[in-house]
């Protein structure tokens, strides 16, 4: 059971956190692994804070509750840092991936976490605005997550993105997303 990885996503509705949670899970599935992805459901209002969860494991996953002790926390909206303790219950040697213009050192201070915690930052919103032209930072932040944690391989993720987005979106949107992913992978700092 030690290979189970639990990720908690903090975001505002409309930023694509649920899609991100599923992208990670489905990429893991494409590698033949087991996974779960689910949002914490409540009234759905664009801009309202929400949590989502991803579990990835090499063996079948049988627990079905919310994730309270994640190894990885991903924050898609830095204004949430003033509203909730995003690292609550996180593993002592956990990892935080933050969508912000802050440096990792500034983010670490803001989060108030120990040196054992890995803190990585990427301006996913800036990248999304420059590439997709909308503030939907979900695909770039997954690229950052992949680079920092290795929970899913980057190449597998890009391949999965091409496949799933290929069914839904125009080539222009797919290319913009691929560009955002590439930039985030290169620009994430820790």
């Amino acid at each position: 059971m030690s290979e189970l990885v639990e990720i908690r996503w903090h975001a505002r509705a409309g930023q694509g956190a649920v899609t991100a949670a599923k992208l990670v899970a489905e990429t893991a599935l494409s590698q033949g692994r087991y996974m779960q992805a689910m949002p914490e459901y409540g009234p759905e209002r664009t801009g309202a804070p929400l949590k989502a969860y991803t579990r990835v494991c090499d063996t079948p996953i049988e627990v079905h509750n919310n994730i309270t002790n994640p190894q990885i926390v991903v924050v898609l909206d830095e204004t949430l840092l003033d509203l909730e303790n995003v690292t609550e219950g996180m593993a002592q040697d956990g990892t935080v991936i933050l969508n912000t213009r802050m440096t990792p050192a500034e983010a670490r201070e803001k989060l108030g976490v120990s040196d054992k915690v890995t803190v990585a930052t990427v301006d996913a919103s800036g990248i999304a605005m420059a590439t997709i032209h909308r503030n939907i930072p979900n695909t770039p932040i997954v690229a950052a997550l992949s680079k920092v944690t290795g929970v899913i391989p980057y190449d597998e993720f890009v391949q999965h993105l091409k496949t799933t987005f290929g069914k839904k979106f125009s080539q222009q949107i797919i290319d913009a997303n691929l560009e955002s992913v590439k930039r985030a992978y290169e620009e994430v700092q820790q």
Binding site: A25, M35, Q36, A37, M38, P60, H64
Partner: peptide, 12 residues
């Protein structure tokens, strides 16, 4: 099937 826990969680 259990609401949300099973109806809406994505699984293998």
């Amino acid at each position: 099937l259990d609401g949300f826990i099973t109806t809406h969680a994505m699984e293998r």
